[in-house]
Nucleic acid binder design. Structure first.
Lengths: 176, 176
DNA sequence: ATCCCTATGGTCTGTTTCGGATGGTGCCGA
DNA sequence: TCGGCACCATCCGAAACAGACCATAGGGAT
């Protein structure tokens, strides 16, 4: 067999199918949008193409809805479930890039004046605070599952970032 | 004119050329690796191909070294500088995705046991702490420039993430 | 001087991602 | 019954990506 490599998108699909049962790509898209999509946006087109790819590899299988639109419904196979468990069981130690366009601008902030840096900092601070409020409104009690607990990192990140940009705004870096 | 769109990579190149003066792709690669590369890794191949693309758009210009390897040396043009200033002057309010594979695994943590979640949390915590130490060792005093101040967000992120994973490890989420 | 070795420096390619443009289609209300 | 819209799906060009692979200058050993 070819060295078929599973991408994060693949595991996303596998995980969703394992959690929510058989789904259409559209349902995947919905589920993703209101959960994991907050910290990892997947283009919806991939949620259509990826299951197709994975069908060929035997990780999922495809059926058709009976009536109506006769949409494709994908479900995870035993092979897929094994691949998912395998992945979930390996504790990744890899770290993501921050890849923040705002931070990239700050990095080149010495090329423009302090006013521009300040405007950037204010805008970023506002955006992070807004997002923070959104996150804080999502759940009321303490997290009820591993899935819900992920919001904790979102909140921590937004708080940290808001504080960082606030400090930049207050105390603009200047080459002496 | 065609709608030539500048990507973050383009601005990276422009910014580096504006900051450091005319450079070869190899020098760009070096400069990036030891600075902005910590939070945004650019494949080195792009630092070769992107300036070529940009030359065609008139944003940079290319010369050749006299002796030795006769490497390509790129420098920013007035047009390029204007584009860069324009970009730097617009305060982006956009937020990046976190895109953390570990967090994605946590999101599906309900599909495996608490032991696996715990192992993940421990590994992630360790990785973030290690990275934190690296960052803290980079500069001694307070930041001397906008560029240096970016490390602040790196440190804040690593601290927040390490704390988050520590809390997951201590208090593993369990569906009741 | 020559030749080899290795740091340094550069190119190329197949795959995946991205994100939006575009194109169907079932269903409900008038 | 028919028109419109929300729902659903596919496609495509342009980049990003990772990394394999190649080239060469210049120093050191002989």
């Amino acid at each position: 067999m070819s060295t078929y490599s599973l991408t994060p998108t693949s595991y996303l699909v596998l995980g969703c199918l394992a959690s929510a049962g058989p789904s259409t790509p559209y349902e995947l898209k919905q589920a993703v949008a209101e959960s994991v999509g907050y910290f990892w946006s997947f283009p919806h087109s991939q949620l259509y193409s990826e299951p197709a790819r994975m069908t060929a590899a035997g990780l999922v299988q495809e059926e058709r809805e009976e009536g109506g639109r006769r949409r494709r419904v994908f479900s995870i196979t035993a092979v897929g479930r094994a691949a998912l468990d395998d992945w979930l069981t390996q504790p990744t130690a890899g770290l993501p890039d921050i890849r923040d366009v705002g931070l990239l601008k700050l990095f080149f902030g010495d090329l423009v004046g302090p006013d521009e840096v300040n405007a950037l900092a204010v805008a970023q601070r506002g955006a992070h605070e807004e997002r923070l409020k959104l996150y804080e409104g999502l759940f009321s009690g303490p997290p009820q599952s591993a899935a819900e607990s992920t919001i904790g990192l979102g909140i921590a990140w937004e708080r940290a970032a808001a504080a960082f940009w606030a400090s930049i705004a207050e105390n603009p870096p200047k080459p002496t």
